[in-house]
């Protein structure tokens, strides 16, 4: 093999560059665990905390498919409680009122960027949510032709 040294050095360099983030993470001190805002009022989630911590995205994806594809809107948890399957309407409004101090803190810590919020709207704390049809706007002139 010609240029053996060059080839091996190139391979090693490439490998080092590819695994660089791993080495850097191992070398630096672990980041402090995020302090999350606990829900006020609510005491139990729809599933054990341990499960939710690791697998809430699976549960949410399942909820998503049940609601969107099967038209099923309610979920009965292990304790028999029936909740509406809705990220904005149930999770955020009923329990985790401050997304920035709960969802975002942990997502930032874990370095993940869920695309959910690209569409799903965070309810505002002030309750200034516009919903339902607005007052009908119509011009004063009723159709003359009919």
């Amino acid at each position: 093999m010609r240029n053996r040294i060059l080839i091996l050095a190139g391979l090693a360099l490439c490998l080092a560059a590819l695994t660089w983030p791993v080495w850097r993470a191992l070398a630096s001190a672990p980041a402090p665990a995020p302090s999350l805002a606990r829900p006020v009022g609510a005491t139990r989630c729809v599933a054990p905390v341990g499960f939710m911590r690791t697998s809430h995205m699976t549960l949410l994806a399942e909820w998503r498919d049940r609601v969107v594809r099967d038209g099923v809107r309610t979920y009965t948890d292990a304790d028999g409680r029936v909740v509406t399957m809705s990220l904005s309407g149930t999770c955020l409004r009923a329990c985790h009122a401050d997304k920035t101090k709960f969802c975002d803190r942990c997502h930032d810590y874990a370095g993940v960027k869920p695309t959910c919020w690209g569409c799903h709207v965070v309810p505002t704390a002030t309750g200034a949510i516009v919903s339902g049809p607005a007052a009908p706007s119509r011009s004063s002139r009723p159709g003359a032709a009919l």
Binding site: P133, A134, P136, R138, S139
Partner: peptide, 22 residues
Amino acid sequence: VRKCLELDGCRACIDACHQAHN
């Protein structure tokens, strides 16, 4: 259609729909 045309220039349904669905 005729009932709808009586409300000349009415946009109530359009506004309601477009607001309810972002």
